[in-house]
């Protein structure tokens, strides 16, 4: 297992297109629900324990080698919002393009052939982690980190929030992020014998609602 490969995959400069998505932060900023570092932290905490946990478990399961088609169907069932399914597949397609160039291998090629329109991003992330020689815990950490890193970076751009404050938010969430990644990895290990229903399906009604409301806006800074 390579620690450096984990840094390459988790690096915000890895060209996987994530910078175009705010993880719901744009809608929350516009509605005034995020207006400073404290409300950003509460937003990130809520997202980490819902969408973040669910994504982390899917990524961990894919990194363990569970069937990506089964996991992609499980991701569909866990993503009732059409806007969020569309965003997840677009992000999956972009990540897969970067991953195939970075860590070429048969499993990534097979995934691209099976999902020409893109698989859910956490599933692609898990298969990518495998191709990079990383394990399920690594994949879960990257997914959990992305679930809060995206909104934090977006809020710096949307509100002009001090980047030092945004980094402080992420640092304070680190212990909870570790716990979520560990829980996701345990669930992925259970899913090996019990099937995808052993994976968490934690959801946030407000994130689902505001994703659809956001998709309806005529002008947006972020795609989701």
């Amino acid at each position: 297992m390579s620690r450096a490969a984990l840094l390459v995959l988790a690096d915000g400069r890895f060209p996987a297109g994530g910078h175009a998505h705010s993880g719901g932060a744009e809608a929350a900023c516009k509605a005034g629900r995020i207006h400073d570092a404290a409300t950003l932290e509460d937003f990130c905490r809520g997202r980490l324990h819902t969408a973040g946990l669910t994504a982390a478990a899917l990524a961990a399961a894919a990194a363990l080698g569970l069937d990506p088609a089964v996991l992609d169907a499980a991701a569909d069932a866990r993503t009732p919002s059409l806007a969020l399914r569309t965003a997840a597949r677009r992000l999956g397609r972009q990540l897969l393009r970067a991953a195939r160039a970075t860590w070429p291998g048969a499993e990534l090629e097979a995934l691209a052939a099976a999902f020409p329109r893109g698989a859910h991003q956490p599933v692609v992330l898990g298969v990518t982690a495998r191709a990079a020689g990383l394990g399920p815990g690594d994949a879960a950490h990257v997914a959990a980190y992305e679930s809060v890193g995206g909104p934090a970076t977006a809020t710096v751009r949307l509100l002009g929030l001090d980047p030092f404050e945004a980094s402080g938010v992420l640092a304070r969430l680190a212990p909870e992020l570790d716990a979520v990644a560990a829980r996701a990895e345990r669930a992925a290990l259970r899913a090996r014998s019990q099937g995808p229903q052993a994976l968490p399906a934690a959801s946030s009604p407000l994130l689902d609602i505001s994703a659809e409301v956001h998709a309806d806006w005529p002008v947006r800074l972020f795609a989701s």
């Binding site: 719901g24 929350a28 629900r33 995020i34 409300t39 509460d42 937003f43 990130c44 905490r45 809520g46 997202r47 980490l48 324990h49 819902t50 946990l53 909870e176 934690a202 946030s204 009604p205 407000l206 994130l207």
Partner: peptide
């Protein structure tokens, strides 16, 4: 419940 359940990404 896990943190943030009533926050801006929870029930607000």
């Amino acid at each position: 419940a896990p943190g943030g359940w009533d926050g801006p990404a929870g029930l607000a």
